[in-house]
Nucleic acid binder design. Structure first.
Lengths: 128, 128, 128, 128
DNA sequence: GTGGTCTAGACCACT
DNA sequence: GTGGTCTAGACCACG
């Protein structure tokens, strides 16, 4: 797994790990059943505190993104969301709202915002 | 100013204030030149410590959303962004990417995501 | 007197008044004996609170820059500094140090800083 | 870090901290990557409230002088200014003008002012 | 251990 | 009245 951290972004490292694992799944780099590096491996590779990795993995497990099998490692789970439809909708709407407010405040029009989102989705689908 | 705080969301109060003031601006509820509640007023209305309000206002001032005048109060500033085009684009793209990854991971299609964003923008424009 | 205020600089208005009166003297726009606007006049012209003007004038009087004659108005005084040589030297050195630290931190060389100062002095002498 | 505060100068403590950290950088006492005392350490050493130190560090971070890492501490950042050339020039010119007006008003000649600045720069370079 | 947020309450500077 | 600074002391999040 090729992770990159931005230590000055203010976003916690464990959150950056979570986000990037999710990205690797939606972009097709990781598929359900794939084994991902163990806590220890990743910690030493990325020179990050193991407890930080641990926290990320625990959260990802809780969200149903990965599952941990004792003695074997961590694996990407089936893409069955643990969230209900309304919950999912609420999560996305909240993030969409934050994006919209920020972008509108920076002076972007509705069209420009949608264009931005469309572009980003395509980038992700191409694995960028 | 009609603010609502979610004390259990984990999002700092001062951040919630910032977000909501920005929202009030983009939704047209507040216009440049408008005076907003003073630190003490808002603090007593919202039953929040004045220094917390102060922090929010200071940050908003730094971002150019409002300006503070000692002895007079706080005012919405001209909507001239302090950021360069590339920086603005970077900010929006980053948020758009976070939204896209999260939504795709929850199983939404590109169309559904765009639909969500479009809906939210319209809500904001209608002042909801 | 043609004063310009920067309300968003953080520098108190009364200080800006003091600085600009001093500037008008060193640049030759005002000479000793010249009458300057009364507190009331200036307050109404500049749309500033009279107490603010009052504070500026009081301070300028204390520093010996102007003197107030009851019923007649305020006048620029003789350019006899009330400060001792060591005091004067300390004041200038302190400001010079602040300038130097800031400029060096921004990456300017000694030559560039001196060039900046030289340029500014000439501007002032030309009354700009 | 050897800081000295003047509690009766009217200059906020957090500002004095900022100025002195900047001084330590330009004078070579601190280099990029160096770890500086933690908020608590400095607070207890200088017998100042941690939140005051925090404010100074937050401002220095915003100016790009240092960066803060939760759980690790504060470090001097690369000396890459966040300001554009014109902005840097404006900042220095403003400070130079303030210095020049004040010094000229105290009766110093252009040569004397430049001499003062030159002397101060050399002092800083020698680490005084 | 680190930084980050918040409260309660005081005092100062400015308009 | 306004914003701005500081203290003392608490609690949380992160590595």
């Amino acid at each position: 797994m090729n992770l990159v951290f931005d230590f000055s972004s203010g976003i916690p490292i464990y959150r950056q790990i979570m986000d990037q694992v999710k990205y690797l799944v939606v972009s097709g780099h990781l598929k359900s059943g794939d084994r991902i590096e163990s806590v220890r491996e990743l910690a030493s590779n990325m020179k990050v505190n193991p407890t930080t990795i641990m926290k990320a993995y625990t959260e990802l497990t809780r969200e149903g993104v990965i599952f941990q099998r004792r003695g074997q490692g961590c694996f990407i789970s089936e893409s069955v969301s643990k969230f209900s439809e309304t919950e999912k909708s609420r999560i996305v709407e909240e993030k969409a709202r934050a994006l919209a407010v920020e972008a509108m405040h920076l002076g972007y029009s509705a069209e420009e915002i949608l264009e931005h989102v469309k572009k980003v989705i395509n980038k992700i689908k191409r694995g960028e």
